[in-house]
Design a binder for these strands. Structure first.
Length: 234
DNA sequence: AAGCGTGTCAACCGCGGGTCA
DNA sequence: ATGACCCGCGGTTGACACGCT
């Protein structure tokens, strides 16, 4: 299937916005393949969808990000990485594109500078890396932490985390909850990666790897409050 | 005033995953 | 099982605004 010829590109006009808005109001969101024809627009379905989601949809917040929004973005990004749609889902009125743009323009540089500052300070025990940490099932079930490699004074907290994941929706409960499948897939993905690293690395490397992961885990524990936000409505 | 560099943001592109025949 | 199609996502681009020299 080739590209649609003579499809209009570039900025949207007010007239196009009105047509699209009327179309969505009449037929509802979704079925984007029908939208250009229904609306009488010479645009591709992707362009229509993007315009609606990022600009025309009701309740979209515009203008400066509030301090608490920025704080939440930073913390969610630390936790989730560049999963903009997921981050946007936790910040009412903001689109994934807005947040991505804001991050790229304002925050990424700020965070890099902060990382540089922090990593050059000897007094900081662990660098507060901007790398994201996502828990895997081994961590949370305690199977890794319970090994002979190390024991942590935070075992109680780990058990608490374990109980959190155990309460996550199971496969058979996910029909009404998209978030459940996300978390499960993420857990499996990270667990997979950990398994691969352990199997390919030598013993000493494996120990370092585990220690690194533990440091990250400590960082994650400090974000329990944030996890509660993320887990809301899951 | 003009040219240039930088910042901002809307929009496009390509890809991965899901669905359905 | 497979391929076509569709949706949604993240990365990137390009146009415009703005400030500085």
């Amino acid at each position: 299937m080739g590209r649609l010829p003579n499809v209009r590109k570039g900025s949207w006009t007010q007239e196009e916005d009105i047509l699209l808005k009327k179309c969505i109001e009449k037929y509802g969101e979704g079925k984007w393949r029908h939208v250009p024809a229904r609306a009488g627009l010479n645009r591709c379905r992707k362009s229509c969808r993007l315009r609606w989601l990022n600009y025309l949809r009701p309740n979209i917040k515009r203008g400066e990000f509030a301090v608490d929004e920025v704080d939440l973005i930073i913390r969610l990004h630390k936790l989730l990485g560049n999963r903009w749609s997921l981050i946007a889902g936790r910040i009412p009125g903001r689109t994934a594109n807005d947040i991505k743009n804001y991050w790229n323009c304002h925050l990424s540089k700020k965070m890099s500078a902060e990382l540089m500052r922090v990593t050059t300070q000897d007094t900081i025990k662990y660098p507060t890396s901007i790398n994201t940490f996502t828990p895997n099932s081994d961590y949370l079930s305690g199977s890794m932490l319970g090994s002979e490699m190390y024991r942590s004074p935070q075992e109680e907290e780990i058990r608490y985390c374990s109980s959190l994941t155990e309460n996550k929706p199971r496969q058979d409960q996910e029909e009404e909850d998209d978030g459940g499948s996300f978390w499960n897939s993420m857990l499996y993905e990270v667990a997979d990666n950990s398994e691969k690293s352990f199997s390919t690395a030598g013993p000493s490397e494996a120990i370092h790897h585990k220690n690194d992961l533990f440091l990250e885990f400590e960082g994650w524990l400090s974000n329990m409050e944030l996890w509660n936000i993320v887990l809301e409505n899951e």
